[in-house]
Every structure is written in C-alpha cells, then in structure tokens.
C-alpha cells in the first residue's frame, strides 16, 4: 500500500501549476505565521510572572508598531492576492489549453450514481472509466441528470460542479501516461461514495485502439435505463447512436442556463 500525495504528485498541465501555487502560497503565509508563533511563545516564556522581568502595565499601544504590522500583513496579502488573480485567469477551468495537438471533447454526465462519459466524435460512451491520449488538451463539458456532483481528478486538474440543466466546462491535459483517480467530491445521495472512476491517460495508439475495441464490442446505450439509480457500477462501454445525447440531457430541464 503506497500513500499517494496526489496534490504534490501532479501529472497534468493544470495540476502542476496548481501544486507550484500551493507551495508558493504556503511559503508566503509562513512569513507571517512563524513570527506570530515565535513571538507568542517567546513572550509567554520571557514574561512569565515568576521571572520578574521588565513590567510595563500601562503600555496600551504603539502606533508605529501597529502600522508596521499592518503594512507587513498588507504586503503579504497583496502578493498572495496578485498570485490569486493571475492564476484565476491562467488556470481558469473554462479556458482551453493551447497545444499543437488537436483538442478532444468529452462530455461528462453525472448520473445517480455513476459517471457517463460521451465521446461525441467517436459515437461511443463509457461509464466510470475515462480514457484519453496524453499531451492532448481535453475539453470536458459537464452536466448532471442527478443531484449536484463535482467532477474531480486531483492529479490532472481542478474540479467543476455538475448540475442539472446546466453546462459547465473544465480543461485538462495529462503530461504522462498513467491511471489517475477520479471521483465526485460533492454529496449527491446514497451512492455518492461509489461515484469514482479511473482516468487513463494513454498513448495515442492505445487510445485509438480502445475506441476501436469499444466500437466493435459494445452494446448500444439505453440512456433511460442507465439513468436509473444504481450504485458502484463497473466500467462499461457503449455505442451511442444519438448524436445530440448530451444536449438533450441538458435541455431536459427546460431552457438551459449556461454558466457564465
């Protein structure tokens, strides 16, 4: 059993930058936290009553010191704030990732209680298993036909809510071939803890082979049957005849709300 510190073991274009960001922010914040702790325990020790050191009971403030501390905190928050602002844009989950390779769109539907992944260009779909080629930008379009879920593969990038009648998007790109843990991070009912899947980044060849196999060997998808509540579903692939399946799921709830 090997412990995997997924947040410090990033394998994706986005998640690598997130890890760097986490480390930078922690370092910046420690600049304020460490002095506070050191001062606290130094003072507590140095000015303990039994020691009878210098005693100034009537000192009730020091404007210079206050301003200094205030300025110090403001500087730290400005630097963290700048990082936050820049990276909100740089790592915006809605922003397509630039790459020489053609991006692949995969549509994600959170169901009760499994993930359905639709590959609109390949006319196949899979449940609780997601495969895509490495070093290729993946555009995920996300919706739900279930209570709200959150789609997350920590080693590849951030998470995004999956909501009824709404379409959200997330962009990821894997830097390395491998199997990564994906799951829902938002409580969505009884089968919530079983809403996990393997996200497999493979070589282009393996990916194409997988698609071919799925095309040949899968049965066709009966969406209404699949959408019924079920738990801990095993990975399966399907043929999808309906080209606008994803849109019809979004539209099912009336006029769609595009999250802006």
């Amino acid at each position: 059993m090997k412990l995997n510190f997924e947040l410090f073991n990033p394998k994706g274009f986005i998640s690598e930058q997130q890890t760097d960001l986490i480390i930078t922010v922690v370092a910046l914040l420690l600049i304020a936290v460490i002095p506070a702790l050191v001062l606290t325990f130094t003072f507590a020790w140095k000015y303990r009553a039994s020691k009878q050191s210098k005693f100034t009971p009537n000192v009730s403030g020091n404007t210079k010191l206050q301003l200094g501390w205030l300025g110090f905190l403001i500087l730290i928050i400005i630097s963290v704030g700048t990082l936050a602002f820049k990276n909100s844009h740089a790592l915006d989950p809605r922003k397509p990732i630039q790459s020489e390779k053609q991006a692949i769109t995969i549509q994600v539907v959170a169901l009760e209680w499994k993930w359905l992944f639709i590959y609109p260009n390949s006319s196949i779909a899979s449940v609780n298993f997601l495969q895509f080629p490495e070093d290729t930008p993946i555009n995920l379009e996300i919706t739900a036909d279930a209570p709200m879920n959150s789609f997350l593969i920590p080693q590849l990038g951030g998470q995004m809510y999956a909501m009824n009648g709404m379409k959200t998007s997330l962009h990821i790109m894997a830097n390395e071939v491998g199997d990564y843990r994906g799951f829902s991070s938002n409580i969505s009912g009884e089968g919530f803890s079983g809403m996990k899947f393997t996200a497999r980044a493979s070589s282009d060849r393996d990916f194409n082979a997988w698609v071919e196999t799925a095309r040949i060997s899968s049965g066709s998808l009966n969406y209404n049957e699949l959408a019924k509540p079920s738990k801990n579903n095993l990975p399966t692939t399907y043929l999808v005849a309906q080209t606008d399946l994803f849109d019809s799921i979004v539209m099912k709830y009336g006029e769609p709300i595009h999250v802006r």
Binding site: A44, Y47, L65, Q66, A84
Partner: peptide
C-alpha cells in the same frame, strides 16, 4: 478572483487582532 481577494483581506484585520493579543503579553506579568 474578486471574492478570493476579499476573503484574503479578512486576514489583515484578523491578523491585527491576534497580533494585539500577542503584544499585550510583551513586558507583562504572565
């Protein structure tokens, strides 16, 4: 980004509250 930065700003007054408590111990009889 706006809401994130607003949130961080709270750390400033909170930091001052904690700092003032710590400085109260300075040259005290604890």
């Amino acid at each position: 980004a706006f809401f994130g930065i607003m949130t961080m700003i709270i750390a400033i007054p909170t930091g001052i509250i904690v700092f003032n408590s710590i400085m109260t111990m300075y040259q005290g009889r604890i």
